[in-house]
Amino acid sequence: MLSATFGAVARATRLVAVTSSLRMKHTLPDLPYDYSALEPYISAEIMKLHHQKHHNTYVTNLNIAEEKLAEAIAKKNLNQIITLQPALNFNGGGHINHSLFWEVLSPNGGGEPKGDLMDIIRRDFGSFENFKNEIINKTVAIQGSGWGWLGYNPTTGRLRINTTANQDPLAPTTGLIPLFGIDVWEHAYYLQYKNVRPDYVKAIFNVANWENVTKRLHAAKMAN
C-alpha cells in the first residue's frame, strides 16, 4: 500500500513537471476534414457530436484535473493527488485516443495500404484480409466501451492487434505504439448504426487513412 502511494505521488509529480504553470492548456484539435466528409460511412451528425461534445469534454475535464493536481501537489495533499488519478487517466486517455482517431480517418481513405505498411501486415498476419478480420473480430467483441488497435511493438519490430477498455490509451497498458484505432464507444456509432456494432467497425475501413498509418509506422521505427 505504501509503495503504491509513493508511486502515485511520483506519477503526479512527473505530470506536474511537464504541465507546469507555464504550460498551455490542452485544446480541442481541428478536424482535418468537414463533419460530412466521411459520409455515408460516418454521418455528419455523429462526427459533430463526437468531436464538439465528447472529445471537447475530455479536453475540458483534463485541464480541470491538471489544475487541481497542481494545487494538490503545491499543498502536499496526498489524498487529493490519489483521488485525481482516475480523472487524469480517463480524460487524458480520451484526448490522446481521439486526437489519433481523427487523423487515421480520411474521406480519401479506404482500400488497401501500400508499400512498407502492406509488406509488414502481410509478414505479421499473412494477408491484409487476415489482419482486417482479426481487428474487426477483436474490436466487435469488446465488452462495453473501448478501442480496437493496430500497434507496433518496438521490442520485436512486429505489429500486433490489441484492445483497451474505456479510454485507456494503448501504449501504457501494452507497450505498443498505436498506429490505427477504432472507437467503439456507443457515441461513435449509435445514432447511425444503432446496436449493430459490426457494421460500423467494418465501415471504418472505407475511410481508413493508410497514408497516416504508414507515417506512424515509420515514426515508430525511427524512435526504436
Rank of each mutant, 00 (worst) to 15 (best):
V184Y: 00
H218T: 14
T139D: 07
N61P: 09
A165E: 09
K75D: 15
A65T: 03
G7C: 10
M24E: 15
V140I: 14
K215V: 08
G157D: 01
P32F: 10
A87I: 06
A188I: 00
I177C: 09
L28T: 02
N56Y: 04
V213T: 13
V207I: 15
S43A: 11
W102E: 15
H54G: 00
S3Q: 14
L31V: 09
P86N: 11
T214D: 15
N153H: 10
G115I: 03
E71M: 12
Y35M: 04
P172F: 01
E129M: 05
K53M: 00
L78C: 12
G146K: 00
E66T: 08
I64W: 09
W210I: 07
L100Y: 11
I121K: 01
V213I: 10
V104W: 02
T13G: 10
Q167C: 04
K138Q: 14
A8M: 14
G7L: 10
L31I: 13
E66H: 03
A65D: 03
V196W: 02
E66M: 08
V16T: 06
R11A: 15
H54L: 07
L2N: 14
K48G: 08
I161S: 06
W102Y: 15
G126I: 03
F205A: 08
S145N: 02
V184C: 03
A208V: 14
F205H: 06
N224C: 05
T155G: 04
D183K: 01
N97I: 04
R14C: 10
L31C: 11
V104P: 01
R216N: 05
W210D: 02
E39I: 05
L150G: 01
K53P: 00
I82G: 04
I64Y: 07
A208H: 08
F90P: 09
L28W: 00
L117N: 04
T139F: 08
T214G: 06
L78N: 14
A74G: 15
N166W: 00
S106W: 03
N79P: 04
K53W: 02
Q143R: 09
I46R: 06
I64Q: 11
E211F: 05
L217H: 10
W149I: 11
D34T: 15
H187K: 05
A203R: 05
W147Q: 00
W149H: 13
E66F: 09
F90E: 09
N212C: 07
R122E: 12
V16W: 02
D30Y: 08
L22G: 11
G92W: 01
R122I: 08
Q52F: 04
H55S: 01
A72L: 04
I42Q: 10
I161G: 03
H51T: 02
V16G: 04
N224V: 08
S43V: 12
Y152I: 08
S3F: 14
G92D: 02
E67T: 13
A44Y: 07
S106Q: 06
S3E: 13
D124W: 02
V207A: 09
P107E: 05
E45A: 13
K53L: 00
V104L: 04
H26C: 10
H50F: 13
